[in-house]
Amino acid sequence: IGEIQRFIRDDGTIKVSRALKEAGLRVRRARDELMKSLGREPTIQEVADALGLTPDDVILAQEATRPPASIHETVYE
């Protein structure tokens, strides 16, 4: 998250949920760009390196941009 904080030039008072969602969108874009430039699926480390993040931050960011799971729609209805 430290990296993510620098990454979006934030003073720290921003909510994690928002910071991770923004990072998640960049992860998606970086993955697409690496697919084109490498001609194959990038590894998680390659995506992290391209963004100056750790693989852990990439994983947290991806989770934050995951479409709501079916479990949420089902269990609470």
Binding site: R31, Q45, P55, I59
Partner: peptide, 19 residues
């Protein structure tokens, strides 16, 4: 299930899988 996803993904990341 989200906690489980993140923990297993972080654990598996040591094998440097593709996205």
């Amino acid at each position: 299930e989200s906690l489980a996803r993140v923990a297993v993904a972080a654990f598996a990341a040591a094998l440097d899988p593709t996205v």
